[in-house]
């Protein structure tokens, strides 16, 4: 597909909106994001979106990660895209910011409790997954009651929901949920990349400003090499993301997305921890924002199921042999 627009052009716009959001009260953020057209970047035009491919959502979500946005933007984008075919009016309301939504990333309705829903206490609707792979976008209320649990993330505090009654709402099909979860791996990776690149930028700046023993920290090879490794990590994220968005002959986009997310999630946390180390004593203060990045990236990793997805990938890889060169020896077990 050819578009006159370039995803990079959205980066500056998105950054400016994130800055405005940082100064606005939480309820006003939905409006600011909607006015700039950011929630509907990758949603169909029929529901008021811009109708662009997911590539264009990447710089927007990355800017949210970088700018510590206190709003579940990724969830709103995903829900708007998924809803388009099931309830156009509700999808439009998400894009315009009239309806605010989140997704309970952990657990299924059958458990009676679902969790890892960013800003679950303050939004209007929540997507709850079912054991059969489908989901429901439900109104938050008496039978779907938000409870604040322990939340590491302070930008978009997580809530859980105790389900005490019938689960009513807009149904999302198994296919729609599958697409939503696949797209979530891309957008989550973008979010973490934005956050990790900010941490690295802060550490690079600090290492050159801070002087000890008569020279900047960045004069020391041990610091230089640490930052170089962090740069390798963030560039790896960038390239993996590009790959997760491209169909190549003989390629496996699902695996590319999975690998991108699993690598990015762990590497993002490591970059934040590394930046804290470079900052020395200042690194572990509340004032320096590195802990906020670390918190949001750790939270993303948990909500994105990094541990279980890695385990499942490993099981899948050893559970079969698909390379034709080795098929003949792999049929004993």
């Amino acid at each position: 597909m050819d578009f006159d627009l370039d995803p990079k052009e959205f980066e500056d716009t998105a950054r400016a909106v994130m800055e405005a959001c940082a100064e606005a009260a939480p309820p006003a953020r939905a409006r600011l994001l909607a006015e700039a057209g950011l929630i509907g970047v990758a949603a169909p035009e029929t529901i008021g979106g811009l109708g662009l491919p997911l590539d264009f959502a990447v710089p927007v979500v990355a800017a949210a990660g970088e700018g510590l946005l206190g709003f579940p933007l990724m969830e709103a984008m995903l829900v708007a895209r998924a809803l388009a075919e099931f309830d156009a009016a509700e999808a439009e309301a998400v894009i315009t910011g009239e309806t605010t939504v989140t997704i309970a990333w952990q657990g299924v309705a059958e458990d009676g409790v679902v969790g890892a829903a960013p800003m679950g206490e303050t939004v209007d609707r929540v997507v709850i997954f079912r054991a059969d792979g489908s989901a429901v976008l439900a109104r938050i209320g008496a039978t779907i009651a938000p409870r604040r649990g322990a939340t590491l993330d302070i930008e978009t505090p997580e809530a859980r929901f105790v389900l005490t009654g019938q689960l009513d709402g807009i149904e999302l099909s198994v296919d729609a949920v599958e697409t939503l979860c696949s797209d979530a791996m891309v957008l989550r990776s973008a979010f973490v990349r934005g956050s990790a690149e900010k941490c690295l930028a802060l550490a690079v700046e600090y290492a050159q400003d801070r002087s000890q023993f008569g020279k900047p920290l960045s004069a020391n090879q041990v610091i230089r090499h640490r930052l170089s490794r962090d740069k390798l990590a963030t560039e790896t994220m960038r390239n993996a993301l590009a790959r997760a968005l491209t169909e190549v002959p003989g390629g496996d986009v699902h695996l590319a997305r999975e690998a991108c997310w699993l690598a990015t999630a762990r590497a993002g946390i490591a970059v934040a921890e590394s930046a804290i180390q470079v900052f020395g004593g200042m690194g572990f203060t509340w004032e320096v924002p590195l802990h906020r990045h670390l918190r949001q990236m750790r939270t993303q990793a948990q909500a994105g199921g990094v541990a279980e997805k890695t385990e499942a990938l490993g099981q899948r890889l050893i559970g079969a042999s698909t390379n034709a060169w080795y098929g003949e020896i792999a049929n004993v077990v």
Partner: peptide, 8 residues
């Protein structure tokens, strides 16, 4: 993986 799968 294939080699390991050749032997239980």
């Amino acid at each position: 993986v294939a080699a390991c799968r050749s032997d239980n």
